[in-house]
Amino acid sequence: MARIQKEDFDAAVEIRRLTANDYRVGGIVTFIGVARGESRGEDIVRLEFECYPEMAEKELNRLEEEARVRFDILNCLVIHRVGEIPAGANIVLIVVTSVHRAQAFDACEWLIDELKKRVPIWKKEYAHSGAWWVEDHP
């Protein structure tokens, strides 16, 4: 079940929860997105993530469901933080479990790519010189 939350996540706890008692798991792929301290050649002090809460959580859950159908995986989880996030802190966690590694790597990459395109979450970067909303997909 995907989550949008203000508080930080603990990847180890989430992995344990996702894999508990599932002895089919042969591989766990994780992606953790972290707030970069640099953008457009400037030091970034913090990020702010805004979302359309009702739709964002629904879209994240749709992504998880699609990933389970599209790839030969056992399970997956996406957590995205919102609110103010200082440079260096966690933003997003994706965990994918599978019997063999290849499908888990593919699913994890697909999930982060689709999240960036489809989930109504917006990032604002705060530098010393000002702040701006990011509207591209690097």
């Binding site: 997105g33 972290v34 707030a35 970069r36 993530f49 979302c51 359309y52 009702e54 739709m55 964002a56 629904k58 995205h80 933003i91 997003v92 982060i112 999240l115 960036k116 395109k117 489809r118 989930v119 109504p120 979450i121 917006w122 990032k123 909303w133 990011v134 509207e135 591209d136 997909h137």
Partner: peptide, 29 residues
């Protein structure tokens, strides 16, 4: 989005619908 589903400009909006204007998304990293 109309009631949380992406829709085009020709789609109907009803008297109790919620319309959201979504700028280019930039979640993730």
């Amino acid at each position: 989005a109309i009631n949380g589903n992406v829709r085009g400009l020709d789609s109907p909006v009803g008297p109790s619908d919620e319309v959201a204007v979504l700028p280019p998304m930039s979640g993730g990293v």
